[in-house]
């Protein structure tokens, strides 16, 4: 079936099988390989993208369900080629990654949680960040620097 949506601000359309997952549509059909697949059980969160402004696991929804939606992947976060998104800068500066495999999902989850907390006027404490990272698994860092990066990224996003 023909599935059209807006990905990173660009209208796209592809003819794909009905059982195509959103992550397969993004990676295999649009060739945007920043979104990762780290597990087969919807647990790891490496595939998190924003669908209509909300963080979702692109491995746990059909591409057809996102038909007509606004999708943002990690490639679409930065506003220009020369300047990273403040959250990406924070992960770089705070050593928030080692192998980097989980990082796209971490960053998409992080930007979603910061936007949500700031939108509701709630304080994003370190404890809240750890709770919010429930659905993202990192096998290298022990999370400490990821949490530090998000604290920093959140303040960068406020001042940005």
């Amino acid at each position: 079936m023909k599935i059209a949506m807006t990905v990173n601000g660009k209208s796209v359309s592809r003819d794909v099988p009905d059982n195509t997952l959103l992550v397969e549509y993004i990676r295999d059909h649009l060739r945007l390989t920043g979104t990762h697949v780290g597990c087969d059980t919807s647990q790891c969160g490496a595939c998190v993208v924003h669908v209509d402004g909300r963080a979702m696991k692109s491995c746990t929804m059909l591409a057809a369900s996102a038909s007509g939606a606004q999708v943002t992947t990690v490639e679409g976060l930065a506003t220009s080629k020369d300047e990273l998104h403040p959250m990406q800068v924070a992960f770089k500066e705070n050593h928030g990654l080692q192998c980097g495999f989980c990082t796209p999902g971490m960053i998409m989850t992080a930007t979603d949680m910061v936007a949500r907390y700031q939108g509701q006027g709630k304080e994003l404490t370190e404890e809240a960040i750890r709770h919010e990272l429930e659905g993202n698994i990192c096998r290298c860092t022990g999370y400490h620097n990821i949490v530090k990066s998000i604290v920093d990224g959140a303040s960068k996003m406020t001042t940005a």
């Binding site: 969160g45 979702m56 696991k57 746990t60 989850t109 979603d112 919010e132 429930e134 659905g135 993202n136």
Partner: peptide, 9 residues
């Protein structure tokens, strides 16, 4: 329930 991404969907 679950995690933030699961709760959004």
């Amino acid at each position: 329930i679950g995690d933030p991404a699961v709760r959004h969907r």
